[in-house]
């Protein structure tokens, strides 16, 4: 979609991409929006899209039988939601719920996977970027695990 290209080009996640690759990604992109409290994806569902959050706030949740849904992390403007689309069997591992009205760019997972298989350079660029996102999340998660404010 033409209107998405300038936004995606400037987005920190995709910055520096070859215009050729950017074009491919734009080809798999679409605008989506979610109401507050609306679930974007559910644990176990097939990962058909991943999202770049444009505006709003999304909670990543794990449902527990004794305590109900527990929010493990919230992400917001500029963050990327979902990487299970990269790893077989391509199912989501968490729930994601919009806490506020949220606009995002949805990227068609199958479309992109196929394009990455064809063009390994594109695949490498995307994986490099995802590796960065995942390490940042992992670092933050580890700090959360430390329970620094708890009494030990």
């Amino acid at each position: 979609m033409q209107t998405l290209e300038p936004y995606l080009a400037e987005h920190p996640f995709l910055k520096g991409l070859d215009p050729r690759h950017l074009n491919i990604i734009v080809g798999c992109a679409s605008n989506v929006s979610f109401d507050a409290e609306q679930y974007i994806l559910h644990e176990g569902e097939e990962a058909t899209n991943f999202y770049i959050i444009h505006q709003g706030k999304v909670a990543l949740e794990i449902f527990t039988s004794d305590r109900g849904p527990i929010t493990i992390q919230t992400i917001g403007e500029g963050d990327v939601l979902g990487w299970s689309w990269l790893i077989p069997p391509y199912h989501w591992h968490y729930d994601a719920r919009a806490i506020e009205p949220t606009n995002a760019i949805a990227l068609d997972a199958k479309c992109l996977r196929d394009k990455c298989e064809e063009d390994h350079d594109l695949g490498y660029e995307l994986l490099k970027r995802f590796a960065h996102v995942i390490t940042q999340r992992l670092e933050a998660t580890r700090l959360q695990l430390l329970d620094v404010y708890g009494i030990h």
Partner: peptide, 23 residues
Amino acid sequence: VIVDSATGDWRGNVGVVTTLIPR
């Protein structure tokens, strides 16, 4: 404001405080 973990009715941020700095 951000918390390390929260149950369903918290509408605020969840995560570690360092993640607020880039924002």
